[in-house]
Design a protein around this nucleic acid. Structure first.
Lengths: 349, 349
DNA sequence: CTGAAAGCGCTAACAC
DNA sequence: GTGTTAGCGCTTTCAG
């Protein structure tokens, strides 16, 4: 492991001359700088960041704390962050919580021990008290989910509006028995999406029992499969289904394919997110597209700026990106007409 | 930022006593240990790993260097590593190279500057010379791709056999114009897969011009779309297609869906990898399943052991996991019979 | 059982 | 222009 001292000895100069030369200090002659850089390169010198950090330099590591990287929302975010940060010389640390607050805490402790420069976090439903304390002393940013105790720097999407729009689409088609399958209410996103669903029903003038809600683990494909199977077996089976998470959507699609359920004939479906396979599923999945990429880029740029300018930019900051409903073939009127036929019929009426 | 010194001052003991108490040194009385731990906890003390590293402690960070986390192979690997490492108190650094050797080099420099404990890398086609040097001084492990200059610690899958098996399946069905679309030959995986394809043709007794190979960027969905479009337009359009990368498969599936190509009627297709949507694509995609998860777990365990036991376990190590052909509906004889019909026919013949 | 002191690699006063 | 020195937070001799 070659150090500045090694270079100094070899060149017969002092350690600080080497340090200054490498830092391109104005007081060092060009010739010395050249010799030092030459030697450093030859000897394979790479500065020790641990030592620099002890001298007050800040880390160049930013951590991303998320439930599960296999969820494409999060891998998109990780990619976008990584790309933007690499350009600025930052490295990305990846911490998966599996939505377990104790795992989250252990990660945050490690991140703090490593004195990371910043943290971008999709918090668990109820972060541990110590997690909150740790984050208070670290530049951080919440993503998607927003927990009041973790400050007011937040980048997310308009979950309420997205679900409202998706549900309103089904209401407009004439559905009166609509089910919503999404994450638990204790997650901020889960609560917002559920509210959006209910808002649309209310605005559509539907009675309270028109909507049926099934909440559960948002990242469980299996839970999606089981729930949709149960929903369809019941006596008052819904004629339409709105999803509130990618993984649940994946489970539902698998199950519906396997059972040979006719979509949109027997059931209209609105998915969540827009995965590669969604467009070729059955008649094409009508789904809620989320601007994850844009959000992640914004988030990266904001944090980079925050970290570069030492300034205490701790002002509340909120960025809400809108989702968009992508219309394909999986939704139709309960009587079997397609959306366009319904539109025409409505126009004639 | 609270240090051991702060604790020492508050308790009126020396810094070394605090250090020893926190390290659970045998020479410190239980009472003192208790008081120190109490104070540390109250004051929110978290040890500074940078300082520890300067005293010779090793980092608890392992880096994963991959082309693109959005590729589900890599996100699965990242997840599996993360899960296994968290249990051992390690953190995961994520570095994306975008298959650019200069980006790869910049990442490796940073990783070295941060003195990471180890590196798990899916190398670019031709790593920079300095990258090779850096890796030599760092415990590392190659994943999937294997570059001779980067040592002989490698975890991967049997690409040759996987493609051989997939292609043999098509040959057995009676196809005589088979196309292979995969990554460039300069990637070790690309070369192996291509060889597997050719081996199967040869073993099937097909002439050299039976196989048509299209090599290109393995992670470009768009390239997959364009190539399949071009292939199908030609005069000698193949009757079967084997894919050699996930992203290319995604592109091909999108394009075939969009163009309404009849599968397996007009074209038999064998995909690469097994994504959620592959089972519900058209008639179900026959595809090459890769045991990525098992490989990643093995890889994590191996590296953890290697890092825990300071021992210089630098013996060559190679682990090859076998892929498996998953039969669904996208392959049939060129004359339109399904695989089972062919089997029966063959039996009768 | 506990304290004093040295030193890891680097940077930044403070000399000359 | 360059050298000397101190000190970041921690561990680890070496002394009591």
């Amino acid at each position: 492991m070659v150090t500045t001292r090694d270079i100094a000895e070899r060149l017969g100069v002092s350690i600080s001359t080497v340090g200054r030369a490498l830092a391109d200090d104005a007081r060092i002659s060009e010739e010395t700088k050249f010799r030092v850089r030459q030697a450093a390169s030859e000897m394979g010198y790479v500065g020790n960041r641990a030592a620099r950090m002890m001298r007050g330099a800040s880390s160049n590591v930013v951590a991303l704390v998320i439930p599960d990287i296999r969820n494409s929302f999060y891998s998109t975010i990780a990619h976008e962050l990584s790309k933007n940060m690499e350009a600025e010389g930052f490295q990305l640390m990846l911490s998966e919580t599996d939505d377990d607050r104790m795992v989250e805490l252990r990660h945050l402790r490690e991140l703090y021990a490593n004195r990371v420069a910043g943290v971008i976090i999709v918090p668990t439903a109820r972060p541990h008290n110590e997690s909150v304390k740790l984050l208070r002393t670290l530049p951080h940013l919440q993503l998607l989910r927003r927990h009041p105790s973790l400050g007011s720097q937040w980048f997310g999407v308009d979950d309420h509006e997205a679900l409202r729009e998706a549900t309103a689409h089904l209401v407009a088609l004439g559905h009166t028995r609509i089910a919503y399958l999404g994450g638990p209410e204790e997650l901020p996103t889960g609560a917002d999406r559920l509210r959006g669903f209910r808002t649309a029903l209310r605005e559509g003038g539907l009675p309270d029992d028109a909507g049926r809600t099934e909440l559960g683990p948002p990242s469980s494909v299996g839970h999606g499969r089981q729930t949709v199977r149960r929903l369809l077996r019941g006596p008052d089976a819904p004629t339409a289904l709105v999803l509130g998470s990618i993984q649940l959507t994946l489970g539902v699609l698998e199950e519906l394919s396997e059972q040979g359920v006719k979509v949109p004939g027997e059931l209209s479906v609105v998915g969540f997110g827009d995965e590669p396979g969604f467009s070729w599923w059955g008649p094409g999945l009508t789904t809620i597209g989320m601007p994850i990429q844009e959000m992640a880029t914004g988030c990266a740029l904001w944090l980079m700026r925050r970290l570069k300018t030492k300034a205490g930019t701790d002002d509340p900051y909120t960025s809400v990106s809108p989702g968009s409903l992508i219309l394909r073939g999986s939704t139709a009127s309960p009587d079997g007409r397609t959306p366009s036929e319904t539109a025409r019929a409505t126009a004639v009426d």
